[in-house]
Design a binder for these strands. Structure first.
Lengths: 315, 315
DNA sequence: TAAAAATACTCCATAGGTATTTTAT
DNA sequence: ATAAAATACCTATGGAGTATTTTTA
C-alpha cells in the first residue's frame, strides 16, 4: 500500500536529484530512503529514476508522478495548516518571505508587536527578491510573502495593504527650488542610482522614468537602499526612495528629498499566499495588523509639502 | 507525522459514522482503528468526532477535514491509476457503471470482446440509475460510466459514442398503417408504458411527448424494458423502445415497431469519468471499441423503413 | 443497561541503522 | 578509480490483535 513516507522520500529525491542528499534532507540513512523508493517503484510498477554515475534523472513517468506527489504533499501541508489555524489562530510555524526593500523598514516595528500579540507564533523570515519568494511560496517552503504587488500567478492570492510613495532623493549640495515638485523628467538630469538586477524596486523606477537599462544609470547596482542613499549623499547621483525607507535611511545621511507632482508615483505593498492555503484568516489578520501599523507610522512622521530637507537636519 | 493510514481510517469512519463498521471495512480491528484516529486528532490538535452512544458525528472541523482528506485520497488513487495505465494500458481493476436500459444490450457483446483484447483488465460491473452512478463515480467507487448523455457535473468529463434512436413499440393486434412514420402525437393515442421513476429513459420519453407524470401513463412503472415489452405485446399500451434494445427484447415477443418521422428522437450514449482521472487514455480506447462495436451491430441488423414488423416474424 | 469506543497488554512486521558490495562512468 | 546506489543483516519502534474497561444516551 502506498504510504506518505514513500511519497515524501520520492519528492526529496526528485528535488535534490541525489539519493544521499535527499536522505540527509529527510534525516534518514541513504539505504532507508533507497528501500522506500524501491518499494514505491515496485508498487506503482514504474521506473521513476534513471540511476546515473553522479546522481539521478527522472524518467518521463517519474516527472508526471513528481507533479502528482507534489500536489498530494501540498494538500497534506494544507490540512495540517488548517488544523493549526483552527486550533489557535496565528500560532505555530509561519515562514514569511519579505523583499529587501521592505524588510529593514517593516520588520523592526512588526516583529515585537507580533511577539506581544501572538506569542504562539513561531515566525521564520526569509529576505530575497520577488522571483525567489514566489518560487519558494509555490514550492511550499514559504507560507506568506510581504512584497510589492501585483503578483501575477494563478496559484497565488494577494491582499493589498498600503501604498508606498516614491520620493526623489538627491545630493544635498545640489540646488533645487524647494517649492517645486519633482517630475519623472527631473530624473534624467543626473545619474540615476538603482538596486542591482532582480529587485522589483529597480524595475519600478525604470518603468517610472521610461528609461532603458542602457541609459545613464549607474552600472554597478547596489544591493541595499542603504548603500544607494550613501552614494546619493556623496553626490554620486539621484535615486528613487520609497517613503517607508525615508526615516531610517536619512537618519545618518544628509540627502535632499522631494515629493513628486500628482499623480505621485507609488508602489502597492501587500501580502501573497498560496490560493489553497487554509491559513487565509491568519494572513488577513496579520495583514490588518500591518495595515494599522503603517497607518500609525505615516501619520506620525508624515512628510508633507514639497521640500522635506528639514526632516533631515535634525539627525 | 501524518500518515495515509490515519487518513484512510478517518475517511472510513466519516463515511460509516461508526468505528466498528469502519474497522471492518478497513479489515482491521476496532482498537487498531481507534488508535490511528486518536493519533490523528492529537497531531491535528482537533476533535474530529463527537462520540455518541450509537455511532459518531463529525464536528464542524471534522467536516472540513473530511473534505480535504477525501481529496487527498482521491489524488492517491489517481496516482495509482496513472501508474497502472502507464504500466499496461487497459489493465488492472476497472469499476464500470452502466444504466439498466443499456447493460443487457451492450454488455453481452462487449464483455467477451474485452476479455479477448485486454485479458489483464479486471472489470467489475455495477448496474443502476444515472443519479447513483454519478454519485459513486464522484466518490471514487466507480471509475467509468456508460450512460445517456448529457451528464452535467463540473468534475466529470464525457465522451459521446453513438446515438440510439427511439422506436415506437405497439401491440401487434393494433392496426396502424405500415407506411406511415410515428410522431409524438401518436404516443398520446394510447396508454404509455414507462420504466419506474429515476430511469433516464423515462424522463427522455416524457420530454419527447411533452407529457406530465400525471397524464395517461401507466402508474406502476416497470423496472425493466423486458417487462414493458411484454406488457406491450399483451396489448396493455405502447412504449418508446431504444433501437439498441430491439433485437433482444422483440426476439420472443410479438410487438409492432415503427420509426419516428424526422427528426428522429434519440438518446446520446457515451462514457463519463472523473475529470482528473489519469486513465483517460484507457477510457478513450474503450470508447472507440464500443463505438466500433455498435457500428457493426447497427449495420448488421439494421432497422430500415417505416414498418419493421418483418424483423419480428422470424423469432 | 446496552452498544460502542477507549484502554491494557502482548507480539510481530517492518522501517531504520551500520557495514559492505555492486554499479556506472 | 570513484562516487553513488543497492544489498545484507540486525535492532527496535510502533501498528495490530485479543481481552477488558469505560463512556454515553
Amino acid at each position: 500500500m502506498t504510504s506518505l513516507k514513500q511519497l515524501r522520500y520520492f519528492d526529496a529525491v526528485a528535488r535534490h536529484g541525489h539519493f544521499g542528499r535527499a536522505a540527509e534532507h529527510c534525516a534518514v540513512s541513504q539505504p532507508a530512503l533507497s528501500m522506500q523508493i524501491r518499494d514505491l517503484e515496485q508498487e506503482l510498477g514504474l521506473k521513476l529514476f534513471e540511476r546515473l554515475a553522479r546522481g539521478i534523472r527522472l524518467t518521463p513517468e517519474g516527472r508526471e508522478v513528481e507533479k502528482r506527489v507534489a500536489r498530494i504533499l501540498s494538500d497534506i501541508r494544507d490540512l495540517d495548516d488548517y488544523a493549526k489555524q483552527r486550533g489557535a489562530p496565528l500560532s505555530g510555524p509561519l515562514n514569511l518571505g519579505v523583499i529587501p526593500s521592505l524588510a529593514p523598514y517593516v520588520l523592526p516595528p512588526l516583529l515585537p508587536l507580533l511577539q506581544r500579540r501572538f506569542g504562539e507564533l513561531d515566525l521564520s523570515i526569509r529576505e530575497t527578491q520577488t522571483q525567489h519568494l514566489v518560487d519558494e511560496l509555490i514550492e511550499g517552503r514559504l507560507d506568506l510573502l510581504l512584497l510589492a504587488l501585483p503578483v501575477e500567478h494563478a496559484e497565488i492570492e494577494t491582499l493589498a495593504l498600503f501604498e508606498d510613495c516614491f520620493l526623489l532623493a538627491y545630493p544635498p549640495d545640489r540646488k533645487i527650488d524647494k517649492d517645486v515638485l519633482a517630475t519623472p523628467e527631473l530624473l534624467k538630469s543626473d545619474r540615476l542610482l538603482l538596486l542591482e538586477e532582480g529587485h522589483c524596486l529597480r524595475d519600478q523606477a525604470l518603468a517610472l522614468c521610461e528609461l532603458r537599462q542602457t541609459d545613464h544609470i549607474n552600472t554597478f547596482g547596489a544591493s541595499s537602499l542603504s548603500t544607494i542613499v550613501q552614494m546619493v549623499a556623496n553626490g554620486m547621483g539621484m535615486t528613487l526612495l520609497p517613503e517607508i525607507a525615508v526615516d531610517l535611511e536619512t537618519r545618518h545621511q544628509r540627502v535632499g528629498l522631494k515629493r513628486f507632482a500628482e499623480p505621485q508615483p507609488f508602489r502597492s505593498i501587500g501580502l501573497a499566499w498560496r490560493r489553497r492555503s487554509p491559513r487565509k484568516p491568519d494572513f488577513m489578520a496579520l495583514g490588518s495588523l500591518i495595515g494599522e501599523m503603517s497607518g500609525i507610522e505615516n501619520s506620525g512622521a508624515g512628510i508633507t509639502g514639497a521640500g522635506v530637507e528639514a526632516e533631515l537636519e535634525s539627525a
